[in-house]
């Protein structure tokens, strides 16, 4: 965005940093120092601490946690959460984006806010709503009990909670991309005889793929990392309803700090991978913008 291209620069005198305005030299240094100090206190020291604590007693304790059955179960359950929540929310997000992005209608902003709503709701309140709906004394409680289906304090409720909190990401990332590319190519494809499916698969999808992937990565990170909402509906039973984020809290409360940090370091690695992919995708979309 900031680059106006070489042809533009030729006519405008180059205004480099401090070229026209003799700034006091120490101001940037002080401001940068304050920014880095603040970020260190809030982000970097805590992040570094995760890795230090996990490996300070040697990699032996780390690997000892990795083979614990309750840890392995929690890790598998975490993967399961993402494996269900991500495809569901990708399907929804794509439908919502295709339905909303290209149209102007009254109340459009309102519909967009509704899709974003799960982000404004406290995860605990999200969990509470699921308990009130599917719990024993909830709306569907007696019907579910009669047919012997457990949702709350069981895996289905945790899936519902995970889906809820990670719902908006895909729609939110894909809608602006669809708005920007416009409908010309799709209309051309349709005029040339492509059906809806072909148009979507061959024309729309290739042009939104990076935005979509970005949404998928964010959905996945949230689905694997969600704690609050899942904690409310899970009951937190080891080897039954415990995901990795819950395992971290539970082991910490039981003074098994090493185990907590071993699991935490894996989740922190997930966060780092997420950020790296995010950065790569942002760069890819930015390069596309420039062209």
């Amino acid at each position: 965005m900031a680059d106006l291209g070489p042809s533009f620069n030729a006519s405008v005198p180059k205004t480099g940093k401090n070229a026209t305005k003799p700034q006091r030299k120490w101001v940037p240094a002080v401001l940068i120092a304050i920014a880095v100090l603040y970020l260190s206190l809030v982000l970097y020291i805590p992040a570094a601490n995760v890795f230090v604590q996990a490996f300070s007693r040697g990699v032996g304790t780390f690997f000892k946690t990795l083979v614990r059955p309750d840890f392995l179960f929690a890790a598998r359950l975490t993967l399961l959460m993402a494996a269900i929540a991500v495809p569901l929310n990708v399907g929804f997000g794509l439908c919502a984006a295709l339905a909303i992005a290209r149209r102007r209608f009254p109340g459009r902003a309102f519909v967009l806010s509704i899709i974003d709503l799960p982000f404004s709701i406290s995860p605990v309140v999200a969990g509470l709503m699921i308990v009130l709906l599917y719990g024993r004394r909830g709306w569907f409680g007696s019907a579910l009990e009669a047919s012997n289906i457990n949702i709350v304090f069981a895996i289905p409720g945790m899936v519902l909670a995970t889906v809820f909190v990670s719902m908006p990401f895909v729609a939110r990332e894909v809608i602006p991309v669809l708005e920007e590319i416009g409908a010309d190519q799709e209309e051309a494809a349709k005029t040339l005889g492509a059906n809806d499916w072909q148009t979507f698969w061959r024309v729309t999808l290739p042009s939104i793929k990076w935005g979509l992937l970005y949404g998928v990565i964010l959905t996945n990170a949230r689905a694997m990392g969600e704690f609050g909402a899942v904690s409310v509906v899970s009951g937190n039973i080891a080897n039954k309803t415990q995901t990795l984020p819950l395992f971290v809290e539970e082991t910490y409360k039981q003074y098994e700090t090493e185990a907590a940090y071993s699991a935490a370091v894996l989740l922190a690695l997930l966060a780092v991978v997420t950020l790296v992919l995010k950065e790569i995708l942002e760069r890819k979309t930015r390069i596309k913008d420039a062209n």
Partner: peptide, 25 residues
């Protein structure tokens, strides 16, 4: 660039991990 990218860390780091490490530090 690294500083810039790291600002998003709280979005990506699971909150229980954040709580754990902040409580320790």
């Amino acid at each position: 660039r690294l500083f810039d990218a790291s600002v998003d860390l709280p979005f990506a780091l699971p909150t229980s991990v954040a709580g754990l490490t902040l409580a320790t530090i």
